[in-house]
Amino acid sequence: MDAVFDLDDLLEADEIAWARKARAFATNRILPAIEQDFEDKRFRVELVAELGAAGFLGMHLDGYGCAGAGAVSYGLVCLELEAADSGWRTFVSVQGSLAMSAIHKYGTEEQKQRWLPGMAAGELVGCFALTEPTGGSDPASMKTTARRDGDDWVLDGSKRWIGLASIADVAVVWAETSEGVRGFLVPTGTPGFTATPIDNKLSMRASIQCDVEFDAVRVPGDAILPGARGLSGPFGCLNEARFGIVWGAMGAARSCLDAAIGRSQTREVFGKPIGATQLIQAKLADMFVEYEKGVLLALHLGRLKERGALTPAQISVGKLNSVREAILIAREARTILGGDGITSEFPVMRHMANLESVRTYEGTDEIHQLVLGRALTGLNAFA
């Protein structure tokens, strides 16, 4: 595949180095156990510190022990990690693009010094508590509240599908206040904070997502993120995570395409490899074209981001396209693998299941279609 699509020719030396480091990590530390981890619903928490030591956590941020890497380098790392499993790219996104970005963008210097160096090193884990049981695509209907009580804040409510919450040291919690939606840094050991892993998942089984309850959770006045007011606060972080997904989903697609190409060369039917048939070659060509287009779009968005010119609508183009096409590539790859494609001998069904979650979080297809529709027409169709 690399012989046709010479991506390295479009990259800088440091970007190639980041990609190769991430591919080596995925190959050596994630892939040997991922099928069993998916079967066992096991998240290997011991890899968190290794990801930190490799510089992948909050790598796009400056200072506080973060690598200060460019947007394309970060995207390439997301692609390589998700080529192993969406759960590990999700971990990097939740830790770096959501929790760490929120603190870095909106926190005080004291908050940054307290949390970011440990999070960059993988010594501390953060989560990002925005989604609620009844309002995944409608955060404006938020029911979690924070009220003043003397110098403190008291939080009540619930969140759902919160990645890493049961292993996190700090939660970035978004709550409705008398002055609108605000963000709070809540140490997870605070009385009244309860995180319960969601156990009955058929997707993202090698990662952690939780239900979170806040029962009169009391935090000091300086727990608030002073730079975030209204929904623009969490949305700013979500766009960072969506950018990583644009790249990451193409990693899952590449893994499926690689499996299909390999199988087409070794499986023989009617006296020859199935890859020597016109129908299989047509499928592989179509899958490859969509993969290459997706990566080139991701690269274009990365260059825009590095210039400070990337817009939310452009991110929606990338997220919508990458995940939708990755799912189609995974499904077509399964047909080439035949019946064996539904087994864990190949990664395709695992990627396909994971991508259904990736398609849903950080904005469903429908939400991104409406974002684009509004950008194209100037008319709001959300309500």
Rank of each mutant, 00 (worst) to 15 (best):
F38C: 10
F38Q: 14
E39F: 10
E39M: 13
E39L: 14
D40E: 15
D40S: 11
F43T: 01
R44N: 11
V45K: 15
V45P: 06
V45W: 14
L47G: 11
V48C: 10
A49G: 14
E50L: 15
E50F: 09
L51E: 01
L51W: 00
L51Y: 02
L51V: 04
G52T: 02
A54Q: 13
G55R: 08
G55V: 07
G58V: 09
G58P: 09
G58T: 07
G58C: 13
L61Q: 10
L61D: 03
L61N: 04
D62R: 15
G63F: 13
G63T: 14
G65H: 10
G65P: 06
C66E: 12
C66Y: 06
A67Y: 01
A67F: 03
G68V: 03
A69K: 03
A69C: 07
A71G: 10
V72P: 01
S73N: 05
S73C: 06
S73Y: 02
Y74A: 12
Y74S: 08
Y74I: 04
G75D: 10
L76I: 08
L76V: 08
L76M: 11
V77L: 10
V77E: 07
C78D: 09
L79K: 12
L79F: 13
E80S: 04
E80D: 04
E80M: 13
L81P: 03
E82K: 11
E82D: 14
A84H: 04
A84P: 04
D85V: 15
S86Q: 14
W88A: 06
W88V: 10
R89I: 03
R89H: 11
T90I: 08
T90W: 03
F91I: 13
V92L: 13
V92W: 03
S93P: 07
V94F: 09
V94N: 12
Q95P: 00
G96C: 05
G96S: 09
S97K: 11
L98V: 11
L98W: 12
M100I: 07
M100S: 10
S101A: 13
S101C: 12
S101H: 12
I103G: 02
H104V: 05
H104G: 08
H104A: 11
H104T: 08
K105F: 13
Y106M: 07
G107H: 04
G107L: 00
G107M: 03
G107K: 03
G107F: 03
T108H: 01
T108K: 00
E109D: 14
E110H: 09
Q111R: 10
Q111V: 05
Q111D: 08
Q111F: 06
K112W: 14
K112M: 10
K112T: 10
Q113P: 03
Q113F: 09
Q113W: 07
W115M: 01
W115S: 02
W115Y: 11
L116C: 03
L116Q: 01
P117C: 12
G118V: 05
A120G: 03
A120S: 09
A121N: 04
G122Y: 00
G122W: 01
G122K: 00
G122P: 00
L124A: 06
L124G: 00
V125A: 09
V125R: 07
G126L: 04
C127H: 00
C127P: 01
F128K: 00
A129R: 01
A129Y: 02
L130I: 15
L130A: 06
L130M: 14
T131N: 09
T131S: 13
T131I: 12
